[in-house]
Nucleic acid binder design. Structure first.
Ligand SMILES: [Zn+2]
Ligand SMILES: [Zn+2]
Ligand SMILES: [Zn+2]
Ligand SMILES: [Zn+2]
Lengths: 171, 171
DNA sequence: GACAGAATGTTATAACATAACAGTCTGTCT
DNA sequence: AGACAGACTGTTATGTTATAACATTCTGTC
């Protein structure tokens, strides 16, 4: 009954999210220390806000959250922090949503395939070497040299399928 | 020496682009007639503008082009036409660029994997069933039901690699 | 404590997109 | 023809996302 990690990259609703966030922040700090990057207070706070849910966070929502703490920063504050976090590979941008999610494993290179649930808005990041390989192959078949890939798959996550799609079809 | 279609989905610089555009518009008209869709003057004109190059077209650039013909339409005019063309599957939106390209084969269902050259800005659309299959598999492995995919691959097209990358590495 | 470079603050504006409502066009029915 | 419905377009205003440019502050080093 360990439902917290059954065949899904989606976070279980009952998981210890406080620990989840702490771990992400600790990882980020270690990662930055190891790479000579400065995870300043603002940057750390922005990452924390992004980590608050497993849903994508939008730039101006992050901005508003930052504002709650008395200060009322302007957009560049957030966008600079986002740029830093993107460059440090600590977050991903979801182009199809203009939103940002924390990276689940910032310590190794990966290609960021994102599963986006249209129903609950949660995002799961998978790092499927087979997908990357097939994309590379498909591209080289056309003489194309891949620099980066954006793979965003929209659909329904297992939890939402179970909750509402039970009358549609099994499997 | 039929260099116009050698192993690449990218348009050759010497191809007959006038014919290219005419064919696209004729196809679009046939497609709309067949599906009971109304390809009005504005919609047709927007498609024509998008077809003008094999580079992605941005909404406000299209708007400006429309304005050259005396009229000076407002943004909704363009966005409505784009919405129609997207729904009719005559164009694709490139999320990572906020831009639009004509679909190369509007007559069948496909998954729109786009190769975007960072150097010449050209975009090639490939419809690789293997890529689609692997993405579906990867997603279902996580219990995820795919509705739609956004696959945008950034890199360098064969022509740009040949032109500048000759000193880097062969193949 | 002077200096350089990084980071942040601040103001303004660019770039992308849609809401809401009014008017026009197109075909259909009588 | 005239009335009507629905699709399309025009127009105004605004919402949303992102960056340019320049001033200031912070951080570590000499
Ligand atoms: Zn969590
Ligand atoms: Zn869901
Ligand atoms: Zn052409
Ligand atoms: Zn190129």
């Amino acid at each position: 009954m360990d439902s917290s990690r059954t065949a899904s990259a989606f976070a279980a609703p009952d998981h210890d999210h406080t620990a989840c966030v702490s771990r992400a922040l600790a990882d980020a700090e270690a990662h930055c220390r190891a790479h000579g990057l400065r995870l300043t207070a603002t940057r750390r706070r922005v990452l924390e806000i992004i980590c608050q849910g497993h849903e994508p966070a939008k730039a101006y929502d992050i901005l508003e959250q930052l504002g709650r703490a008395g200060r009322h920063p302007a957009p560049p504050t957030v966008y600079r922090a986002l740029e830093f976090l993107l460059d440090a590979r600590l977050i991903h941008r979801i182009d199809s949503l203009n939103a940002y999610v924390a990276c689940v494993h910032p310590n190794r290179q990966h290609s960021a395939q994102l599963l986006v649930c249209s129903s609950c808005e949660q995002v799961a990041e998978i790092d499927d070497p087979q997908i990357q390989a097939v994309l590379d192959q498909g591209a080289s078949r056309h003489g194309f040299k891949v620099d980066s890939q954006t793979v965003e798959i929209h659909g329904r996550c297992p939890r939402c399928r179970a909750a509402q799609g039970a009358d549609h079809e099994g499997a």
